[in-house]
C-alpha cells in the first residue's frame, strides 16, 4: 500500500472522539435518566467555545480550532454535575482558560477537563461527579466505542491509555487477589463510564502527557498508583481525577528526566486537497508508531519536522504524500 493510499484513509481522530462523546451525551439527555440537563450542557459547550475564541485572539494564535475544545467540553458535560448553570459555565470557562494560563515550556500543564472538574469541585462546593451513574448497557456501548477508537485512530499516544489501564487493572485485581475477594468485585469496579472517559479521553490527552514514551508509561503508572491510593487508602471518590491533577504537576520533571520531542498540533492535513484547512491531529501521520523513548515525532522524517517548525510545510507534505522520503520510513 502506498503512503498516499494509507494517508487518504486516515482522518482526524478527534472527529471520531467528538462523535462518540456527542452521541453519548445526546443519548444520556434524551433517553437515559442521566441527570444531565440540556441547558447546562449547552451552557458548557457555548462557554467553552467562546473562551477558546477569546483566548485564541488574546494570545495571538493564528487559528481558532473548535475540536479539542469540543472534546473537553463534551467530557465536562458528561462528568460534571451541578444544580446551577452558573457553576457549569464557570467550570467550562476555567477548563478552557487553564490551557492558556497554566503553561510550562510551551504546553499546558493540566488536562483541561480534569482541571476544570477539580477546580469546580474545590472552589464552588456546588459541583460533584457521579461515577456510578452509568448503566451497564450504556457502559458496554461506550466501551466498544472507546476500543473502536483505538483501532480506528491507531494513535501512538494511545500508549498512555494502554499503560494506565494495565497498571490500574493490576492494582484492582492485585488488591482483590490479596484480599481473597471474588473477581466479580474488580470486574464490577471496571464497569464505570467515568473510568472509560478518563482512560480514553482524559489521560490520553497528548498535550499534557510526557513527551517520551518511557515518560508516558511512568506517568500512567503514577496516575494509577495515585488513584488507587485515593480510592483504597483515603477512601475518597473520584481518585482518578485527583490523581491525574496531582500527577500532571510532575510532568515537567518527567520530561526533564526522560526527554522526548514535544507534541505539537500540526499545520498539515491528511490529503493534499485539505491542506489549506489547517490544523489536524498529529497522530494522523503516525501510522507506524513511535520509537520507545523517542517521542512520536522522532521516528518520522525530516519533512514532518519541517512542518512542525513551519518551514515549508506544504512542500514537505506533498513530498511525503507523493511517496518521497519522509514518513515512509
Amino acid at each position: 500500500m502506498t503512503t498516499r493510499a494509507r494517508l487518504g484513509h486516515v482522518r482526524d481522530p478527534r472527529d471520531y472522539q467528538i462523535t462518540v462523546l456527542a452521541s453519548l451525551l445526546v443519548y444520556g439527555i434524551l433517553w437515559l435518566d442521566f441527570e444531565v440537563q440540556a441547558a447546562h450542557a449547552l451552557g458548557i459547550l457555548v462557554t467553552a467555545q467562546l473562551t477558546q475564541y477569546v483566548c485564541t485572539r488574546l494570545s495571538g494564535l493564528p487559528r481558532f480550532d473548535p475540536r479539542s475544545v469540543l472534546i473537553s467540553s463534551l467530557s465536562l458535560c458528561l462528568l460534571l454535575r451541578t444544580n446551577f448553570i452558573a457553576v457549569a459555565v464557570f467550570t467550562a470557562g476555567i477548563t478552557i482558560a487553564s490551557k492558556f494560563l497554566i503553561r510550562w515550556n510551551g504546553k499546558h500543564l493540566f488536562n483541561p477537563t480534569n482541571f476544570g472538574l477539580v477546580v469546580g469541585i474545590l472552589l464552588t462546593a456546588e459541583a460533584w461527579v457521579s461515577p456510578g451513574q452509568w448503566g451497564s448497557s450504556l457502559y458496554l456501548g461506550f466501551l466498544f466505542a472507546c476500543l473502536g477508537g483505538l483501532v480506528v485512530n491507531r494513535s501512538s499516544r494511545s500508549d498512555v491509555t494502554y499503560a494506565f489501564l494495565c497498571f490500574y487493572l493490576a492494582i484492582l485485581f492485585g488488591r482483590s487477589i490479596w484480599l481473597g475477594e471474588p473477581m466479580s468485585i474488580p470486574l464490577h469496579r471496571l464497569q464505570s463510564g467515568a473510568l472509560l472517559l478518563f482512560a480514553f479521553f482524559m489521560i490520553s490527552d497528548p498535550k499534557t502527557t510526557p513527551d517520551s514514551r518511557a515518560g508516558r508509561i511512568l506517568f500512567a503508572s503514577l496516575v494509577a498508583l495515585g488513584a488507587g491510593f485515593v480510592q483504597f487508602l483515603l477512601f475518597r471518590t473520584n481518585g482518578l481525577l485527583w490523581s491525574l491533577a496531582l500527577c500532571a504537576m510532575f510532568v515537567p520533571i518527567i520530561d526533564r528526566l526522560l526527554p522526548g520531542t514535544q507534541y505539537q498540533w500540526q499545520r498539515a492535513a491528511t490529503t493534499p486537497g485539505a491542506l489549506s484547512k489547517g490544523v489536524t491531529h498529529e497522530t494522523a501521520f503516525d501510522l507506524r508508531g513511535s520509537r520507545p523513548g523517542g517521542g512520536i515525532l522522532a521516528g518520522i522524517g525530516e519533512s514532518l519536522l519541517r512542518i512542525l517548525r513551519g518551514q515549508g510545510g506544504r512542500q514537505a507534505v506533498q513530498q511525503s504524500l507523493s511517496g518521497g522520503s519522509g514518513p515512509t520510513r
Binding site: 454535575r81 451541578t82 444544580n83 462546593a125 456546588e126 459541583a127 460533584w128 457521579s130 475477594e181 471474588p182 466479580s184 468485585i185 470486574l187 464490577h188 469496579r189 471518590t237
Partner: peptide
C-alpha cells in the same frame, strides 16, 4: 450477591434538590 458483588460505597453530593 451476583448483582451486588461489592459493598455499597456512598458519597455526599452538593445536590439539595
Amino acid at each position: 450477591g451476583e448483582r451486588f458483588p461489592e459493598d455499597l460505597v456512598f458519597q455526599e453530593t452538593a445536590d439539595r434538590t
